[in-house]
Amino acid sequence: MANEKVHVRQISKEFIVSSKGIEDRITALQDVSFSVQEGEIIALTGTSGCGKTTMLRIIMGLENQSSGIVEVGGKQVTGPGYDRGMIFQHAELLPWRTALENVEFGLEVKGVSPQERREAAKYYLELVGLKDAMNHRPTQLSGGMKQRVGIARALAIDPDVLLMDEPFGALDAQTRETLQDELLKIHEQTKKTIIFVTHDLDEAVLLADKVVVMFPDPGRIHEIVDINIQRPRNDVIAIKGSDEFNQKRYYIWKALKTAASSTVGV
């Protein structure tokens, strides 16, 4: 288990935005380093604009860093790859495809035979509890169901690392909690390494082994907080009542609160 899966080394990212001929540099990320062990769940949290999405996109290979290195499984990231699976905030299903066909998408692009990918897609849809909605189109699915399809689609390519950008952020509180439970179960079953972005501190502490607390302007890591709650985390009620959960939650909340109030005055 003590096997390093993702290594983010001194990543910096500058965006150059020009409006009315004036060029402006935004330091979205400054010297960000952290590592993730195999099978770990890591949460990135912090106020809007502190570079969480940018960090995730760099790990996925959708964005190029200005400097620094990202390694996944010992290999340097230069672009998207099947060792990483992305789950988008709004699921981003293709509306003309059924749930099953959406899950097949990655495998199809990868060149897996029709029969094989159909089997795999069915298996992962069942894993996320959507076997009955297999032939539904996205318009017929609720927000929570869409996100389950999005998770199944990423799992179907059997990546080592799952990257999730506020995966449950657009869902109502109840659906969000159901999907958090679901994700914990899927993690128990698949042991995937997961990096996810969230604004929801309950979610961060409940799911993650480490919470990366980020500050904005420039986007940087303030602190990495270890969450010492044992797995499997089946008993959510007990966890949410535990001292560890509440202390860590309060600790992170306080750190973010201080950062927010210090920037308000600027």
């Binding site: 959708l62 998207p80 790859g81 099947y82 992305m86 988008f88 981003e92 990868k110």
Partner: peptide, 9 residues
């Protein structure tokens, strides 16, 4: 939507 394609190589 296009990025979904890119992310799945």
């Amino acid at each position: 939507m296009i990025e979904v394609g890119t992310a799945f190589v």
